[in-house]
Simulated scan of single mutants.
Amino acid sequence: MTADAAQLAWTASWLGTGLGAGLWLWSWVRVKDPIQKLRFLDCGTALVFASILVRVVVQDRAMSVFDWVWVVVSPLFIAGALWRLARTSGPPDGN
């Protein structure tokens, strides 16, 4: 059994989606600290939307309107999540 690159990317994207959804669920159920909760949500958001982009790129059929919406919206959500992760990564200012 040989796996081509598209099949490998498709499988990895579903694993990323599952991991991102797991991070969302973990943040809602287990995490009490608001900053940690936000960081788990942002990591999950980046993973889920990146996985969606991978599935859109490796699909066999022609892109539909919904695929184009994913292509435009997903990088915005990823950038927003990464920006918020960068803003919450350091210790609070002592000022």
Rank of each mutant, 00 (worst) to 15 (best):
M1S: 08
M1C: 02
T2E: 04
D4R: 07
A5L: 15
Q7E: 15
Q7T: 14
Q7I: 04
Q7D: 14
L8E: 15
A9L: 10
A9N: 03
T11V: 11
A12P: 01
S13H: 05
S13V: 10
W14R: 13
W14G: 04
W14Y: 15
L15N: 09
G16S: 05
G16D: 03
G16L: 11
T17L: 15
G20P: 04
L23Y: 01
L23H: 00
W24E: 08
W24R: 05
L25N: 05
W28M: 12
R30Y: 11
V31N: 06
D33H: 04
P34D: 12
P34R: 09
I35C: 01
I35Q: 06
Q36V: 03
Q36F: 00
K37S: 11
L38S: 05
L38D: 05
R39M: 08
L41S: 04
L41N: 08
D42I: 00
D42G: 00
C43P: 00
T45E: 13
A46C: 02
L47P: 11
L47W: 12
F49R: 07
F49Q: 13
F49V: 06
I52Q: 07
L53N: 10
L53F: 06
V54L: 05
R55E: 09
R55Q: 14
V56I: 14
V56Q: 01
V57R: 04
V57F: 10
V57W: 14
V58N: 09
Q59F: 10
Q59E: 14
Q59A: 13
R61K: 11
A62L: 05
A62E: 08
M63W: 12
S64T: 15
V65S: 11
F66G: 13
D67I: 08
D67H: 15
D67C: 13
W68Q: 13
V71T: 05
V73L: 09
V73D: 06
S74V: 07
P75L: 10
P75V: 14
P75S: 08
L76D: 02
L76I: 13
L76Y: 04
F77H: 12
I78T: 05
I78W: 07
G80H: 06
L82P: 00
W83D: 03
W83K: 06
R84P: 00
L85G: 03
R87Y: 01
R87H: 02
T88S: 02
S89A: 10
S89C: 01
S89M: 01
S89L: 02
P91E: 09
P91L: 11
P92T: 09
P92A: 12
D93E: 15
D93F: 06
G94C: 07
G94Q: 08
N95D: 07
